[in-house]
Design a protein around this nucleic acid. Structure first.
Lengths: 249, 249
DNA sequence: TTCTTCGCTTGATCTGCATCAAAGGCAGAC
DNA sequence: GTCTGCCTTTGATGCAGATCAAGCGAAGAA
């Protein structure tokens, strides 16, 4: 279902390109793209596997091709907070730093497109296009982080759950499957515990609020993971966010 | 006391420059710097004044020269969460977007060094150095945002307060005044309410925890704003963070 | 001087979520 | 088939921090 991605998204930002993440785009097949192709390689991880531990050496940068990875921070006493959720086409790693700042974990089977940091950095100095694209992506991530901060600091448990569901629904490629009526179907890529780590809650509270949303008819559950949202607007109502819509318009 | 800053920090990243934020640095006085000088202008704001409202047109980017500004998000019902704290040398504004995503407010008297977005962006495409520097700064901000997320999601009120004090102490230029003994003196640039908005708490809880830290001898208070930290390590103990030190070594 | 305002502190009470605990459902191993 | 382990749900209870409320002190205005 999902179209494969790789780091070509770095040099690839044609607003009018019909398939935004195609591995090769006629308009973007430039020198940069070809040079990237030469130094890239792929790595696979199984669900549950750790990609790197916080503090460990990380001598590559990468973008997610398929699957989902998380960035988490852990306190000495074991309290955990997820600080990043990496979906296909997302970038991880920081040029100019050699150790990972967070635990990176595959929550599903995962394929990443990697570049050893050295040649990537060398390339970056020679190709302004890449630094600009990377800046753009980083600014998007910063915006997402700031919305996440509002969620963590000020939203109720119910609002947090609704917001997370809305975020995942928005980014899930399978949303193309949605029926005309505004209903939406997708699979949760996270366990209750991972949702809790995302939201700054306990897994029990997550479970209770999921049940409550179900009881109130905001969502339907098939099994633990398969979600049906009969009315996306009703879900958005629960997030506490401004109802700008903006999505599905 | 504070050394003036301006956007020269954008093209200026000499690790061995003795005064990292000098307005002009011999090693950095390049073409870029001179071109930046030509298009920059300054704006001043009084304490409490709003620089831009979320959603408004924002046709410039800027960096803080002196004073402190905040980025906040507000929900319809009035709940507020601070999502950024801008100290001297910090950058605000996003190339490639024309409206502000957050309220930007001066919490003290504020001077900013501004660039109209158009010429700035034009310059950026011609000078890879600037995009790279901006990327680096944005990545730093992203890291700060992620640490902030851990704070918001998992820390207790007491840990939040201690963390905020540690963050401000770390960044306050006047820390050079610290006595040999590891004690530290600084002025809080925020009201109790602003601290609460930063930390995802109420102002009452902030006040209570400040009193508690004072009672326990972690901090001393002179008036409402002037803080003395007799033992910085003791404060760090309260933050819940790994005691990597790293600072003041 | 006194009044008002604003930022702050402190007390009393309430409540949303955490914590502790038990049990159900499902998948994979044997 | 049963057993085992993991994820999840649900219930009972407790507590950290929110909420409601009162009052203080300093700065400025009349």
């Amino acid at each position: 279902m999902a179209v494969p991605h790789d780091l070509t998204t770095l040099v690839h930002d044609c607003a009018d390109c019909p398939i935004r993440h195609r591995a090769v785009c006629a308009r973007c097949e430039t020198d940069e793209l070809q040079r990237l192709e030469q130094i890239k390689y792929y790595r696979s991880y199984q669900a549950g596997q750790t990609v790197v531990w916080s503090g460990d050496r990380m001598d590559f940068v990468a973008s997610v091709v398929t699957g989902i990875a998380t960035l988490t921070q852990t306190m000495e006493d074991g309290r955990r907070q997820m600080v990043g959720l990496l979906l296909p086409s997302d970038f991880v790693g920081r040029p100019g730093r050699s150790t990972a700042a967070y635990d990176v974990t595959a929550t599903t089977d995962l394929v990443m497109c990697c570049f050893r940091k050295k040649p990537f950095e060398e390339m970056m100095t020679g190709t302004p296009h890449i630094a600009q694209r990377l800046l753009e992506m980083t600014l998007d991530e910063l915006d997402a982080a700031r919305e996440w901060m509002l969620l963590l600091g000020r939203k109720t448990a119910r609002e947090k759950i609704a917001s997370l569901l809305a975020i995942i629904a928005r980014r899930d490629a399978s949303l193309k499957l949605r029926a005309a009526q505004g209903s939406l179907v997708f699979d949760l890529p996270l366990t209750r515990e991972e949702m809790a780590d995302y939201l700054g809650l306990t897994l029990e509270t997550v479970s209770r609020q999921m049940s409550a949303l179900k009881k109130d008819g905001i969502i339907e559950l098939e099994g633990k993971r398969h979600i049906i949202v009969p009315n996306f607007d009703a879900l958005l109502e629960e997030t506490g966010d401004d109802s700008d819509g903006g999505f599905l318009v």
